[in-house]
Write a protein that binds this DNA or RNA. Structure first.
Lengths: 334, 334
DNA sequence: TTGTATGCGTTATCAG
DNA sequence: CTGATAACGCATACAA
């Protein structure tokens, strides 16, 4: 048997479909007795609104799509929490699409958006394609997009971010303040816009202290555990070992910590470590990780609010939120 | 300006809307010249299908909804990967809904499903409500649901899981084999069905070895880092300290490890630790964590395949997948 | 190979 | 307060 429609309900309640619809959306405009009859018919049939029909008629879906590059990356979870709370407060359902940084999957979600299944989107990563060009989008009346964090300042879309360069500067300055002079940086992947910003902050901090930025102190990385382990191997192989390392994210720092521990290199006695992000596990690293906290829930919430404004016809400006240096046990004096 | 419709395309291409539709869905049935005219008109207008209209007409949405209890829990990411690959192979878009184990949010996603916005759902957690009662659902022609892992055997829905009791038994037997006799278990939350299964396996393993299951060796927990730390506090406060602990998940084990390290208690020298799940960070714990690996990608893929079968009208049986005891460095002889 | 016409289930407008 | 009816944009059966 097939799904009951509004018509089935109407017939059973002995009213017109218009009245049923009103009972569902503006209950107080219909007579109490009628309303009761209708609602009872709704229960009796197990009726549910057909979203496709509703959405076709109303020209909106009451859904936001959040495109995430990698759900497995714990960094994103709290952002999602912030988004969700704002979204549901506005009566929207938040749906997450995991692009896996794959072009094909990203395309699939973009199509989803273009097909009108979401009223707008939040983008948590550098898009693989340039489909999001804002002027074009707006001209065509397409659903708006707000980007979070991993996006360049000139990319077009409205953005929520922190001052990545400043944060990197603060992290490295903390190490310098502890007396470190030979400080390495383990960078993110070249393809990621954040990488350049954090490298720039690292270099600027060195310069501010009258230090040279040495190429051999800039380690490659890809945000993964393994590249943290690789960084340790490289660290250990060097004649002039750095006394401190600043990592472009926490996960790489954790990989380094694991390798260091196994090799008998102690943190912070032998080397100081600073991460970036303050992910959930940073507090339970051994030792607990000094890192840059991004206000993730706030970032998500702010982005969602921006999106709602845009949907509402306004044209808000991008937002920059404050970061925080969280000093734990992985950093110490030289 | 508003979104172009199929009619705009038809007008510009000088054909009927039926032909446009055919160009999009059955291109080879339309003359090459016509097709070219149409596709060019599509490009020119920037036309995109209206999913609501299509879905209303076709009575399906080509979408699967995956309900996750907590996106921040790294355990779920690989499951999602497995689901995604099967889903996209079948031409379906995978959408993730994060219920946050909240009844209200779960309801929102269930409504989403009931409203026909997804053709089926995958449930990665114990539902908060009993809305998923299968016989009722099928009778009403509602979208099918397949559950993964965290669900009781009699709950109704088709399920993909591992033998949790057997896995717990294997973990504890491993400890017993190493000579441990006083073995504690840090359990999951009572509300979670897995908790009882793993406790049962723990007890059975003790009994098999002629040991008593002592209530004071069963620690409460909630799957969070903090309850792992609490377990350490309790462990340290005991007169007769266990020589080994089996945790109902890796995250709690990690919390324990961090506290133990800080207190100078060494693993596995002073105490052996076994986790459950083999999450991403398990290999980078200090020391690397012995744990039970669940074939997460496979579980996701299997669940998706089951769902597709059900959507296709079949009535497949539940599936149980093999687990694996991964022995790393956190367990050693007494 | 193409066009015409109908209906998918709602919401909103307009009368009554 | 309630009912009839016209879109919404598309896919498809049927006719040409």
């Amino acid at each position: 048997m097939s799904r009951p429609t509004i018509e089935d309900v109407a017939r059973i309640a002995g009213v017109s479909i218009a009245t049923v619809s009103r009972c569902l959306h503006m209950p107080d405009v219909v007579a109490v007795k009628t309303r009761e009859r209708v609602l009872s018919a709704v229960r009796q049939t197990g009726y549910n609104l057909n979203a496709a029909a509703q959405s076709l008629r109303q020209r909106r879906s009451n859904t936001v799509l959040v495109m995430v590059p990698d759900i497995g990356n714990t960094f994103f979870s709290k952002i999602l929490g912030g988004i969700e709370s704002e979204a549901s407060a506005a009566g929207l359902t938040m749906l997450i699409g995991d692009t896996g940084r794959s072009r094909a999957r990203e395309d699939a979600y973009v199509r989803y958006l273009l097909n009108g299944r979401a009223d707008g989107a939040l983008l948590l990563a550098d898009p693989q394609a340039a489909w999001f060009d804002i002027p074009t989008r707006n001209a065509m009346g397409l659903p708006p997009i707000v980007a979070i964090s991993e996006i360049g300042p000139d990319s077009g879309p409205v953005t929520v971010s922190i001052d990545n360069e400043g944060a990197a500067h603060a992290a490295v300055s903390h190490l310098i303040g502890l007396g470190h002079r030979r400080i390495a940086h383990v960078a993110g992947p070249d393809s990621n816009i954040l990488t350049a910003q954090r490298v720039a902050g690292y270099r600027r901090a060195l310069h501010s202290a009258g230090l040279q930025a040495e190429p051999w102190l800039e380690f490659p990385g890809d945000f993964g555990l393994t590249s943290g382990r690789a960084a340790f191997a490289r660290f250990q192989g060097q004649d002039q070992r750095p006394s401190a390392l600043f990592f472009a994210n926490d996960e790489m720092a954790m990989g380094f910590l694991a390798s260091a521990y196994a090799a008998g290199v102690r943190v912070p006695r032998d080397v100081s470590i600073v991460g970036f992000d303050d992910i959930h596990f940073a507090q339970s690293c051994i030792p607990a990780l000094t890192t840059i906290r991004q206000p993730r829930a706030e970032m998500g919430a702010a982005a969602m609010r921006l999106l709602l404004e845009i949907i509402g016809g306004k044209a808000p400006a991008s937002v920059q939120l404050p970061y925080e240096l969280v000093i734990r046990d992985s950093t110490g004096p030289v």
